[in-house]
Computed example of a mutant assay.
Amino acid sequence: MLSLSNLLKTVAMLPVFVAACSLFFLMVLTFFDVILRSVFNAPIEAATELTRMSMAITVFAVMPVVSGAGKHIYVDLLDGFFYRLRLNRVRDALICLGCGAMLWWPASRVVVLAERARSYGDMTEYLNIPVFYMTWFIAIMTYATMVVLILRGLAIIFAPQFLESEK
């Protein structure tokens, strides 16, 4: 039987797989666009919008996974100070909870933009893909990141033993 930890790791692999496929598609697209542009003077016309969509998928798909694993890039200028005072868990919990709470505003704004794009019928220039699909994806992944950060902050406070295996 799967433990909760194994189940979460399995579920977390789906957005990582989506991001990896998107990144691979972006790599292949760029390769063929450069070859076609340089050799045949015939670039892929939709390359710009496909690149934008692939970059959005790559970045926003892994945001909840990176946040949940605590793998952000950070500068540890004050780590020595917090470790001496034994406040590192308090600091980490407050940062996770604060950042998670702050993500509500941009996520809700992206929802407004997605609904505006849907109501106006906005489409991409070359492929005529409705813009609101990608905008909703960004909003959903931002909300997911918000939830993950809040849960991580609560886990740091109430159940730090679940996070100890990450270090």
Rank of each mutant, 00 (worst) to 15 (best):
L149Y: 13
G153R: 10
T142L: 13
A144R: 07
N128C: 02
N128Y: 02
E125Y: 04
Y143R: 05
L149H: 14
R152S: 15
V131I: 11
V147D: 13
G153L: 12
I140A: 08
L127P: 00
V147W: 15
I138Y: 04
M141T: 11
I140V: 11
T145S: 14
G153D: 15
R152I: 12
I129N: 00
L127V: 05
P130R: 13
I138L: 05
M123V: 08
V131D: 07
I129M: 01
Y126W: 09
L149K: 14
F132D: 00
V148L: 13
T145P: 11
I150P: 12
T124C: 02
L149D: 04
V148H: 15
T124E: 00
F137W: 12
I129L: 01
D122E: 14
W136R: 06
M141E: 03
T142H: 07
G153V: 13
A139F: 09
F137G: 06
Y143G: 04
V147Y: 13
I138G: 04
A139S: 12
D122M: 04
E125R: 01
F137P: 11
F137L: 05
I129G: 01
I129C: 02
V148Q: 15
I150E: 09
R152N: 13
I138S: 01
V148W: 13
N128T: 00
V147I: 15
L151G: 11
T135M: 11
L151D: 08
V131M: 10
T142E: 10
T124Y: 00
T145K: 12
L149P: 14
M146D: 06
M146T: 07
M141V: 06
A144H: 03
M134G: 07
T135L: 12
R152F: 03
R152A: 15
P130M: 08
I140K: 02
M141Q: 05
P130Y: 07
Y143T: 06
